[in-house]
Computed example of a mutant assay.
Amino acid sequence: MASSFLRAAISNNAFWCDAICKALGSPGEFTATLWFHRRGTPPFYPDAVTLTETEGEQTETIATLINSEKRDWAIKDSYAALDLAPLGFKLLFEAEWIGMRTPVSAQSPTTWRRMESAADLAQWEAEWSKANGPVTQKIFTEPLLNDPEIAFLLGFEHGKPIGGGILNHHAGVVGHSNLFAEGRHRETVRRGLIAQAVELYPREPLVGYERGDNLDEALRAGFELLGPLRVWLKEA
């Protein structure tokens, strides 16, 4: 049975996906077992996130969704519990949910700044795009900056941006995501985000998900494994 910590990490992630869509003027929908969006989400964001291990009901809802419109569909299988191949999906990637129950702040030479204006967000996006490549469709919008439970953060050394990320506070945990940095700064940036989470949302656990080298780096920073996830893709 899934731990309450894992369930909180999943709920936090679904909230973040919904917040992105809501800020674009098109929120998703929640059921007891699934968060989903009928009309399509921005790049890098799934069309559905499973919230429980209730396989049958979720598969039926996903089948209904993909039959409603012919386009690409991405599903975040939060418990790595679904077999969506019979519906025409292919496994895009596997990853691990991670958590840190008691984040600890560490001293760092990095100076952090929270993005508060449209100009700040444009600077953050420009730096984020260097790591993720250009994106033609809008993802991050100014309403997100007005939510005290969401923080866009940019780290500087000697006045120059070296990386950043996003924190979101929901379900009693703080999600950290969209971490970006030059290779030699990645661990510095992740530890800096941990410190920012401690400062902005004291005594709250930290969660997220990673894979590959980024997962190894997160474990070195003090995160623990919470459970596997899968992302499935069905192309139009």
Rank of each mutant, 00 (worst) to 15 (best):
T102V: 11
P103T: 04
P86V: 10
T110F: 13
K138H: 04
M100G: 00
L91R: 07
A95H: 10
P86F: 08
W124N: 08
A106S: 15
P109V: 11
A131W: 04
N132E: 07
K130S: 11
S117R: 02
A81D: 09
K138E: 11
E127Q: 13
P86T: 10
P109T: 10
D120A: 02
E125F: 07
M100K: 02
A85P: 05
V104L: 13
K90I: 14
L87N: 03
L82T: 09
L87K: 05
N132K: 12
T111E: 15
A85T: 15
G133N: 06
F89G: 03
G133V: 03
G88R: 03
I139L: 03
Y79I: 00
P134N: 15
W124D: 10
L82W: 06
A126H: 11
F93C: 09
E116C: 12
A81S: 11
L84A: 03
F93Y: 13
P86N: 07
E127V: 14
S117H: 01
A85H: 10
K130F: 08
R101V: 10
A131Q: 12
Q137V: 12
S108H: 07
F89A: 05
E96C: 04
A85N: 06
E125R: 14
E96Y: 06
F140G: 01
Q123K: 12
L84V: 02
I98D: 03
